[in-house]
Write a protein that binds this DNA or RNA. Sequence first.
DNA 1: CGAGCAGTTGATTTTTATCAAGTAGCGTGG
DNA 2: CCACGCTACTTGATAAAAATCAACTGCTCG
Lengths: 245, 245
Amino acid sequence: MLELRSLPTDCAKRRQESVCSACGARAFSVCSSLDSSDLAGLDAIAERVTLKAGEALIREGDPAVHLFNITSGSVRIYKLLPDGRRQITGFLFAGDFVGLATGQDYAFSGEAIEDATLCRFRKTDYRALIRERPLLEEALLDRATHELAAAQNQMLLLGRKTAQERIASFLLDLPTRDPLRPSTEDQVRLPMTRSEIADYLGLTIETVSRVLTKLKTTGVIRLLSLNELRIEQPDRLRDIAEGEV
Amino acid sequence: MLELRSLPTDCAKRRQESVCSACGARAFSVCSSLDSSDLAGLDAIAERVTLKAGEALIREGDPAVHLFNITSGSVRIYKLLPDGRRQITGFLFAGDFVGLATGQDYAFSGEAIEDATLCRFRKTDYRALIRERPLLEEALLDRATHELAAAQNQMLLLGRKTAQERIASFLLDLPTRDPLRPSTEDQVRLPMTRSEIADYLGLTIETVSRVLTKLKTTGVIRLLSLNELRIEQPDRLRDIAEGEV
DNA sequence: CGAGCAGTTGATTTTTATCAAGTAGCGTGG
DNA sequence: CCACGCTACTTGATAAAAATCAACTGCTCG
């Protein structure tokens, strides 16, 4: 049930597999030395939740009762302005936590992009549990810390990168976080729509479409289908992402 | 020496004052029940650091040896693109931690905006310490969590708000985080330059200047000096910040 | 087969950046 | 004390990037 996916900076060999007693899903430790016994407590207070594509998980402003861990599928979290403008602040995949960054009320909404399964904990239970399990807390702090670093990268992207640089950065970053990435090297799965990519990168769908077309025309990427593409020239894409053009 | 400033969501009465044995500076607990004895351990491994305005604290890419807590003054943290474009990802004040969001190497640079004093810990010492002090770790997790929520707000700002909305949001947010805010209600201290405001909001200095002039002209704010202004119409500024115009 | 939706492409507008020319405040040195 | 020059800031004119508006394509699903 609980699957703490290894963080991107981990080397694979530090992964430690364990099996959730409650639902049988595999659980991976994060980089610090967390093992099955540490996760067992979490499993005990977890409920399983199933969501169809598009269904809401949490809604901004609601009391933050639960904390979630994604078992399968993917989730978008976002914030809205009163007039409907949307900023997607993250795409989350199996192993990610949803709801860590909240106080009294949820500060963002979350919905399934694809069909998804999740583990749900009451925040109060989880608070009590992590007090007894310092290794679990350390793992969560580690994870929050990594998310913070990712958020800073995203601020750099949103504040200072051009449309082309944003798309390039996105195409390079996404597969590193998606556990379902195609096995083929440099192939990218896009489970989200153009509209979601636009709202994640602070652009419009038209601009996303135009930039993808341009990258295709210049031979940097190849569109395999609407939701799948291949990076033909990774070095060039990396240069574009960092503004080296 | 160590000053864990209360988080904005705290009610004042939950503040718990304690005095650092090493340097005499006051230390406040964060919202959870952290007291002097929990902080004492941190003091023991802390060194005092003094910085003049403009001096660097940490540099992106350097090994992340230290963790800092600001005792006085203010700090900017930022990331650069190869061509020099800068995104300031945060302004930090007394009580804030610098260096939480890092793995092996620092992922951002940090410099003093004004003269500042800080406490410095070796990360290894601090890691060892928080394992023994669950309340401290909980406080840090809490803080990381709040920073994550703030980062999401900033992503909404950078990705979807207009220049005017960004400035309005900034003017409303800054005083809530600056412990040196003027005692006069609705008065805002701007210890940073226009260039820093611009790099924090993803704008240029010219745009920042123009928007401030416009807000002044429409009577929403009054510029008292270059680095001090007063919000004349807080409700209207709040409306502008949320796009209700 | 056709409706509807996601995506693409094109023309135009808007916003903000860029380039350029001032102005104001401040510290320094005469 | 004042002139000088520096820097930060402001203001104006123009350019560029991306948004908006609009038309069209192609795919999926009933």
